[in-house]
């Protein structure tokens, strides 16, 4: 029997929710632990971070100098590096400090800012090293995580839908909350993966899976404006868990210029 692939799970600046998604696969967890060697996973396993990883799952964004060095070390010791979640793929909610806010934020929160060391910006893992696959979402979908693990074990590419949340919503047969109820919804520009969760709960999508490819954000903003949303509110809607994703950041800035 060939040795099991070695898995490493790594945390950068984050809430731990995406790596927790693995522990939330309650029915599959012991099977996953049987199929893979969970060699490093500090949240769940007491073991040293040594050696080479066949798969590295990386959660969180880079916000300190130590993290900026650490990601290169992980990359050098990993065959396949996968970013899991909005922080790792675009910087996360903490990227709201980018654009010159960092020093002010530090002073606002801590009486002795000099005792802390952080970078000016929170950045995506792909700003630092090559990334082989990414899972979107704040948090990721555990179904996508299991698909990714199964695909890597089988040596095939993971099947993760590239289309918009809006299409998932149509496929689920849900009534459009924007057309029928006039609720603001980012579904048309947001990457699929959640199963169009929010519209199923009578709420507009708030974009936690980040921009889909070729997102027409300007057109959506015009529609949101027609529903009565102010430019400031539209800018805020694009400035949450994927605020540093280029398409969302550009649209928020465009709204700010109005």
């Amino acid at each position: 029997m060939p040795p099991r692939p070695r898995l490493g799970v790594f945390k950068f600046s984050s809430c731990d929710g995406c790596q927790l998604s693995l522990l939330d696969c309650e029915r599959e967890l012991l099977d996953v632990a049987g199929a893979l060697e969970i060699a490093y996973f500090a949240e769940a396993v007491s073991a040293e971070d040594t050696g080479h990883y066949d798969v590295a799952l990386v959660e969180g964004s880079v916000t300190t100098e130590a993290e900026a060095l650490h990601i290169h070390d992980i990359r050098a010791r990993s065959t396949t590096l996968v970013t899991i979640g909005a922080c790792a793929t675009s910087g996360g909610i903490q990227a709201l400090k980018n654009g010159g806010n960092a020093a002010g934020f530090l002073k606002m929160v801590y009486p002795t800012p000099a005792w802390l060391h952080t970078l000016e910006s929170a950045t995506a893992i792909s700003d630092h090293v090559k990334v082989d696959h990414e899972l979107r979402g704040c948090p990721i979908s555990k179904h996508q995580l299991l698909e990714l693990i199964a695909a890597l074990l089988a040596g095939r590419r993971p099947q993760t839908e590239p289309h918009a949340t809006c299409l998932e919503c149509k496929l689920a047969g849900q009534v459009c909350v924007m057309v029928a109820e006039g609720k603001p919804c980012l579904g048309p520009v947001t990457h699929a993966g959640c199963g169009a969760l929010c519209p199923g709960y009578a709420r507009g999508c708030y974009g936690c899976f980040g921009p889909k490819e070729t997102a027409n954000t300007a057109s959506l903003s015009a529609q949101l404006g027609a529903l009565g949303e102010s430019p400031a509110r539209i800018a805020r809607a694009f400035s949450t868990f994927n605020t540093n994703a280029p398409e969302f950041r550009a649209e928020a800035e465009a709204q700010g210029d109005d």
Binding site: F12, S13, S14, C15, D16, G17, C18, Q19, L20, T63, T64, E67, G92, I93, Q94, L96, K97, N101, G104, F105, L106, M108, V109, Y110, L116, T118, A122, C138, P139, Y206, R233, R236, T240, F241
Partner: peptide
């Protein structure tokens, strides 16, 4: 653990956003 400055980034956000933003403090 690197600080993420939630109390600072909440400033200027709408009251209705606090529940979703602060939930990102902790995945557990």
């Amino acid at each position: 653990e690197p600080p993420r400055f939630f109390e600072a980034l909440l400033r200027g956000r709408g009251y209705e956003e606090a529940a979703d933003i602060t939930s990102r403090i902790c995945g557990i």
